[in-house]
Measured scan of single mutants.
Amino acid sequence: KYLVLALYDYQEKSPREVTMKKGDILTLLNSTNKDWWKVEVNGRQGFVPAAYVKYL
């Protein structure tokens, strides 16, 4: 498993997404889509914009 760092705040806009705050450390679950990565944060799984996170 990889960890990624939230570069920006992101507010979920659909039930498939998750909210994150700048500085959050997220567990990367799937990065096959170049635009949306599946992550786990605070016990929830969902998608965030790939451009908003970077590998640690």
Results as ranks from 00 to 15, higher is better:
Ile25Ala: 04
Lys34Val: 10
Ile25Gln: 06
Pro49Met: 04
Thr19Gly: 10
Leu29His: 06
Val18Leu: 14
Ile25Asp: 01
Thr19Ser: 15
Thr32Val: 11
Thr19Gln: 05
Thr19Glu: 04
Tyr10Gly: 01
Pro15Gln: 10
Ser14Asn: 12
Asn42Gly: 12
Asp35Lys: 14
Leu26Lys: 00
Ser14Tyr: 07
Val39Thr: 01
Asn33Trp: 07
Gly23Phe: 04
Thr27Lys: 12
Glu17Gln: 11
Ala50Leu: 02
Leu29Tyr: 04
Asp35Cys: 12
Lys38Trp: 15
Lys22Ile: 07
Lys13Ile: 08
Val4Asn: 01
Met20Lys: 00
Asp9Trp: 02
Ala50Ser: 14
Val39Glu: 00
Val41Ala: 11
Leu3Ser: 08
Leu28Arg: 01
Gly23Trp: 05
Leu29Asn: 02
Gly46Glu: 01
Ser31Gly: 11
Thr32Gly: 11
Phe47Gly: 01
Val18Trp: 03
Thr32Trp: 11
Pro49Ile: 03
Ala50Pro: 05
Lys13Leu: 11
Asp9Gly: 06
Asn33Gln: 09
Leu28Ala: 03
Leu56Ser: 07
Leu28Trp: 02
Thr32Ala: 13
Val18Gly: 02
Asp35Met: 12
Thr27Met: 13
Tyr2Asp: 12
Val41Lys: 13
Asp9Val: 02
Ala6Gly: 03
Ser14Phe: 06
Leu5Ala: 07
Leu29Ile: 15
Ala50Val: 07
Ala50Glu: 03
Lys54Ile: 15
Lys54Pro: 01
Pro49Arg: 03
Thr32Met: 12
Ala6Asp: 00
Gly43Cys: 07
Leu56Val: 13
Asn30Ser: 13
Asp9Thr: 05
Val18Gln: 03
Val39Tyr: 00
Val39Met: 01
Pro49Cys: 04
Lys34Glu: 11
Val4Arg: 02
Ala51Ser: 14
Glu17Met: 05
Tyr8Trp: 11
Val4Gln: 01
Thr32Leu: 10
Asp9Met: 03
Lys38Asp: 04
Lys1Leu: 13
Leu56Asp: 07
Ser31Ala: 15
Gln11Ala: 14
Arg44Ile: 09
Gly43Pro: 01
Leu56Trp: 12
Asp9Arg: 01
Leu7Ser: 04
Val41Cys: 10
Asn42Leu: 08
Trp36Pro: 00
Lys1Ala: 13
Leu28Met: 05
Leu29Phe: 05
Arg44Tyr: 07
Arg16Phe: 14
Val48Arg: 00
Gly23Gln: 02
Tyr52Arg: 07
Ala6His: 02
Asp9Ala: 06
Gln45Trp: 08
Leu29Gln: 04
Asn42His: 12
Pro15Cys: 10
Arg16Thr: 12
Asn42Ser: 10
Val48Asn: 00
Val18Asp: 00
Ser31His: 10
Arg16Gly: 15
Glu40Thr: 06
Tyr10Trp: 11
Val4Pro: 01
Met20Phe: 10
Ser31Met: 11
Arg16Val: 14
Ile25Phe: 06
Leu29Met: 08
Leu28Val: 10
Glu12Leu: 08
Ala6Tyr: 03
Lys22Met: 08
Thr27Tyr: 12
Pro15His: 12
Leu56Gln: 08
Trp36Asp: 01
Thr19Arg: 05
Phe47Val: 07
Met20Gln: 02
Tyr55His: 13
Trp36Leu: 04
Ala50Tyr: 02
Trp37Asn: 01
Thr27Ala: 10
Lys1Glu: 11
Trp36Ala: 02
Lys21Glu: 07
Lys38Ser: 08
Leu3Gly: 04
Pro15Arg: 10
